[in-house]
Structure formats: C-alpha cells, structure tokens
Simulated assay, not measured.
Amino acid sequence: MKPAEAYILNQPEPFKSILLHLQILIEGTFPKADLQFKWKIPFYYLDDKPFCYLNPSKKKGYVDVAFWVSAHLTKYNEFLISENRKVVKSLRYYQLEDINELVLLTVLEEAHRLKDKGFYKKS
C-alpha cells in the first residue's frame, strides 16, 4: 500500500469518507494520475507534474482539493477558495454530501487542460 493510501485510510470520519470519494473520482477520471505522499498529504501527479492535492484540516473540519493553476481556472470560480493564499485555490468539503461532482470534475478537467498547455512545471 502506498503511503498516501495508508494516510487516507487512517483518517477519522468524515475525512476518510470524503478523501476516499475524492480518490475514486480523481482516479476514475484520470487513470494515469499518480497518487504520492508529499509534505505529509496526498498529492496527485500527472506526467510527473503536480496536478492537485488533498488537504484535510482536522482543526477546521474540512478537506480541500487544491490547485496551483488557480489563477488560470475560469470555471466555477465562485466555488474556489483562496483564503489568503496567493497562488493556490481549492474546493472545500465539510461533509461527503458537499461534494458536487459536476463542479469538481469540471475544475479537474480544466486544470488538466492547463497542465497540457504548460502551466504546470515539473516538481
């Protein structure tokens, strides 16, 4: 088992359920996505480039799906949260029912297109 998978499975509820659902959606949509464990959280890479990361905040009670290319994202910006971050924006989920799959998959697809246009650099 990968360290990122173990991390997800060891999370308390509701974080575990949210993270597992996000994992299924991301890997189902992007089968080549590589789940890694960087900076103590799950990171997805596509073609050796960072794609998005999953950041559970137990203290604040949510899970973020965060994107570096947020300045270039144009769809569903009303759902993207920057919260004093200069580069990264995220979709935030407090419970499993908060996940709007259409919004998430649309933002993931747009981030993927931006990655293909060279907005991501290899890490």
Rank of each mutant, 00 (worst) to 15 (best):
S123R: 10
E78Y: 12
A4D: 09
D64L: 09
S57Y: 07
N84T: 13
T106Y: 01
Q23C: 13
L73H: 08
L91K: 03
L96M: 04
Q11D: 02
K121Q: 14
Y62K: 07
K89Y: 07
L9Q: 13
K49F: 04
E110Q: 12
T106N: 01
P3E: 14
A33P: 08
P3H: 10
K16L: 08
G28W: 07
F30I: 10
N84W: 06
F67A: 03
Q23N: 13
Y7H: 03
K49C: 12
F119Q: 06
F43L: 03
W39V: 12
Y93A: 08
S57V: 08
K58E: 12
P50Q: 07
F67H: 00
V63Q: 04
G28Y: 07
S90N: 00
L102P: 01
D47A: 15
K117W: 10
Y53Q: 00
E5F: 03
D116F: 09
I8W: 04
E97S: 15
I81K: 15
R92E: 00
T106K: 00
E110Y: 07
K40G: 07
Y44K: 05
D98F: 09
I99V: 09
L54Q: 10
Y53H: 08
D98K: 11
I18Q: 03
F15I: 01
A4I: 13
A4K: 00
I81R: 13
K115G: 09
K49E: 08
Q36A: 13
E78A: 05
I99N: 07
A33I: 06
A66E: 09
E101Q: 11
E83N: 15
K89C: 14
K122P: 01
L104K: 04
N55H: 12
K117T: 07
Q23W: 05
H72Y: 14
E97K: 14
I99W: 03
F43C: 06
A6T: 14
I81L: 12
Y62R: 05
A6F: 01
L9V: 02
K49Q: 11
F119R: 11
Q36W: 03
E109M: 10
V103Q: 01
I24A: 14
I8R: 00
E13W: 03
K2F: 08
V87W: 08
P12V: 09
V107A: 06
P42A: 03
V107S: 01
E109W: 07
L54G: 03
W39G: 07
I18C: 00
L80G: 08
A111Y: 02
I18K: 00
I8N: 00
V88E: 05
I41M: 13
I99E: 03
L25N: 02
K122F: 05
S17P: 05
V88L: 11
L104S: 01
L102C: 13
K60C: 05
K60W: 05
V69A: 09
L104T: 02
G61Y: 00
V63T: 09
L35W: 01
P50R: 00
L96V: 07
K59M: 10
V87C: 03
N55L: 11
L46Y: 01
K121M: 10
F43N: 04
E97C: 08
E27M: 14
K75E: 15
